[in-house]
């Protein structure tokens, strides 16, 4: 276990190696929040609330949504897909295989290391700024644990998706396109940019069958109190189900990839 925390700590330090990098990212997050908030304010323009397939959604809800979505993106995003893609392309994956350590677990803890550093240097400043301009109400105490569990699960789901796609690099060297695809699909179907409230029925139905909404949309709705306790638990249950499925898929892809590597060479 100490080993994996060392992975976490090293990645934490790596992420803070370049000072200006840290500050620019911090600034970027705050800017992004203002832009999105301004966008929704303009869209609502004098309208108090909009009728959606999930009830009345007011501008205030939307601002809260944007703040939460930005916070979540800090905590769930990862570079895993590029880290793995690079390892495969450069052949460093071979060095990795000569170590008595599981790549998947090591990568998970590295992603956690990055996120821990973001938590301190991006989330905290963001929350401070948001508290001044767009104050966010804390949810009822009994909702908070559910939200945190859903958030952590969302992180794991996002990690597993990136990890598995990264492994596709064994067959398809130019991982950039896949990464782009994953980012865009997640942006649309997770509700990271536009809440699923505003989706036409067909897209809402489709997203029900996909794991992406469980990364952003579902945790946010739990936080905002748009789902009751039972629905919240159902969401968490679905998350665990998806984690199970994705772990199996990742295992399968990993074994196929490794057997290709050891037969064909890097």
């Amino acid at each position: 276990m100490r080993l994996y925390f060392a992975f976490l700590a090293n990645e934490f330090q790596t992420n803070l190696a370049y000072k200006s990098d840290v500050f620019l990212k911090m600034l970027g997050r705050v800017m992004g929040l203002f832009v999105q908030a301004a966008l929704w304010t303009a869209l609502y323009h004098n309208t108090v609330s909009a009728e959606t397939n999930m009830g009345q959604i007011g501008l205030n809800d939307m601002i809260n949504y944007v703040v939460l979505s930005t916070c979540i993106s800090i905590m769930v995003n990862n570079n895993t897909i590029f880290q793995i893609g690079d390892k495969i392309r450069s052949g460093d994956i071979g060095l990795q295989l000569m170590k008595p350590v599981s790549l998947q677990t090591a990568m998970l803890f590295q992603a956690m290391g990055i996120n821990a550093s973001r938590l301190v240097f991006e989330l905290v400043p963001l929350v401070a700024v948001a508290a001044i301009f767009y104050p966010l109400e804390l949810p009822p105490v009994q909702v908070l644990p559910l939200f945190l569990i859903a958030l952590a699960n969302g992180f794991v789901i996002n990690f597993l998706l990136a990890y598995t796609l990264g492994l596709v690099g064994f067959w398809y060297i130019n991982i950039y396109h896949l990464s782009r695809l994953l980012t865009d699909v997640i942006k649309v179907f997770s509700g990271a940019w536009i809440p699923l409230w505003f989706f036409p029925q067909i897209l809402t139905d489709l997203s029900e069958w996909l794991p992406f909404r469980l990364i952003y949309f579902s945790p946010i709705t739990i936080y905002l109190g748009k789902t009751d306790a039972f629905d919240s638990l159902m969401i968490i249950l679905q998350q665990f189900m998806w984690i199970g499925i994705l772990v199996l898929v990742a295992k399968f892809v990993w074994h196929r990839g490794i057997s290709k590597l050891v037969i064909q060479g890097g």
Binding site: R2, L3, A6, F7, A9, N10, Q13, T14, A17, Y18, L95, K99, P100, V101
Partner: peptide, 19 residues
Amino acid sequence: QLWWDIPVSESFKLLKYMY
């Protein structure tokens, strides 16, 4: 096999735990 952006000693520590 060392970590690029952090001190050498940190890479060693990680290997110490690993093995």
